[in-house]
């Protein structure tokens, strides 16, 4: 009985141990022994950098295989990549070696390629791209640092100045020192103005503080707007008028654009001119009327006579006047 118990314990112990080994194996290596062998493709690089056997091959970050072997092939280095059977790599996909952090682990990253491209056959060669080595990048960063330092030195020189010319800071300092009084006065004035504005004094203050003024302003703007609208409509009618004139309609239009009317007008003006010439020469009745002195004298004497006659009429009384008027009327 005790023997059987001992056997059972040992059996359990052994099985437990084996189970733990299996679990560790699955966890750390993902059960590699049971995995399919997949297929291999070749990737050629100028340098494999930190890449070594057993490193991951990833597509879009997902592990799809590993580096089966690395070798030198003529003037380049080749990595044999073992890819899981069900993973398809497109013909136009390209591989690149990614160095993962500073401690020097690396993996091969393959991009997805285009949708329409065919898939890579086992044993085929994949396109590769070379990326800058971390050391190169570091060297570039070093150069950049030097440049930055130079630039910063220039800036600080501009600020601090040298023995010959004072720097920016010194100049600003001088400016402030020289104008301290002015500045403080300006500041005091500003203070005064803002105080007034706050208290609602002055136009600006009222504008800011008085709601009524604001309403008026708004109303004023509304008026302006309606005025502008009216002006617009006026302009529109003016425009239509001009259009009508242009099209030769109406009197003005005819006048401006009708050739015949123009000619008529010219002829009329010419005859008017000849009439006025005649008048100014004293020809004709009107000319004589205007240019002859005797006619004026005659007129004067005539008027004097008429005046006298009227005076006489006034003396004979209003009845006579009524009679004269009635005579005149009937």
């Amino acid at each position: 009985m005790q023997n059987a118990q001992q056997t059972a314990r040992v059996g359990l112990f052994f099985l437990l141990g084996m189970a733990l080994i299996w679990v560790t194996f699955e966890t750390l290596s993902g059960g590699k022994i049971l995995r399919d062998k997949g297929y291999q493709i070749v990737a050629g690089f100028d340098t494999l950098k930190e890449l070594k056997e057993g490193d991951d091959v990833r597509m879009a970050g997902v592990k799809i295989g590993e580096v089966a072997a690395t070798r030198l092939a003529g003037r380049r280095a080749e990595a044999l990549l073992r890819i899981d059977t069900h993973q398809v790599i497109k013909e136009d996909a390209s591989a690149v070696i990614i160095t993962n952090g500073l401690i020097g682990t690396a993996y091969v990253s393959i991009d997805l390629g285009s949708d329409r491209a065919g898939s890579l056959k086992p044993g085929a060669e994949i396109r590769t791209r070379n990326t800058p080595d971390i050391n190169e990048v570091m060297a570039q960063i070093g150069d950049l640092g030097k440049k930055l330092e130079g630039a910063l030195q220039g800036i600080s020189g501009a600020f601090a100045g040298d023995s010959k010319s004072p720097g920016l800071v010194q100049r600003i300092d001088q400016l402030v020192t020289d104008n301290r009084e002015n500045l403080s006065r300006t500041t005091a004035n500003l203070q005064l103005i803002t105080d007034k504005v706050n208290r609602g004094e002055g136009t600006l203050g009222r504008l800011i503080n008085d709601p009524k003024l604001h309403d008026e302003l708004v109303a004023g703007v509304a008026d302006l707007r309606s005025g502008a609208a009216q002006a617009k409509s006026f302009l529109a009618s003016a425009q239509s008028l001009v259009d009508e004139v242009k099209s030769g309609r109406g009197t003005l239009g005819t006048l401006v654009f009708d050739q015949k009317a123009g000619d008529d007008l010219k002829a009329s003006l010419a005859s008017l001119r000849s009439v006025s010439d005649k008048i100014s020469r004293g020809e004709g009745t009107l000319g004589k009327l205007l240019g002859d002195e005797t006619l004026l004298r005659d007129m004067r004497s005539l008027l004097r006579k008429a005046d006298r006659a009227l005076d006489g009429m006034g003396d004979s009384g209003p009845l006579t006047a009524v009679g004269v008027v009635a005579n005149g009327l009937f």
Partner: peptide, 13 residues
């Protein structure tokens, strides 16, 4: 031979 792997894996874990 049978027990050492068991002891070792337990020790590891």
């Amino acid at each position: 031979l049978a027990m050492m792997p068991v002891l070792t894996i337990m020790s590891d874990l």
